[in-house]
Amino acid sequence: MPPPQAYYVWYCPGSILALWVMERHGLRTSLLWGYALQLVMITLTCAGLRMADAHAAYAVVWVAQVVGSFGQPLYLNNVVRGSCSAIRHRSALTFAPDAPGR
């Protein structure tokens, strides 16, 4: 299976793991683990692309893609959660200074 397809396939179990990490440890830990895994993915890819042995290089890049596909959902799937829970959104009834009933 070529590396890009590996990424698509492993993104799904990665997403399930990301849901659990978010539920158990929260947004900050999810982001930290996501970025850390992304760093590992890029480091492995850099190393793999410099290897002389084509088979070994392919294997390392494949593993890097799998690591990346577990890391990416940890920050990508939390975009809306981060935005919704951190940014004050408009609500005529709750936040307008002249809201009725105050």
Binding site: Y8, Y11, C12, S15, A18, L19, M22, E23, P73, L76, N77, N78, V79, V80, R81, C84, S85
Partner: peptide, 15 residues
């Protein structure tokens, strides 16, 4: 939680 719906949307659209 928003990330639950977001995850399903991302996973299903990926597949």
């Amino acid at each position: 939680p928003a990330n639950s719906s977001n995850t399903i949307l991302n996973v299903v659209s990926n597949l």
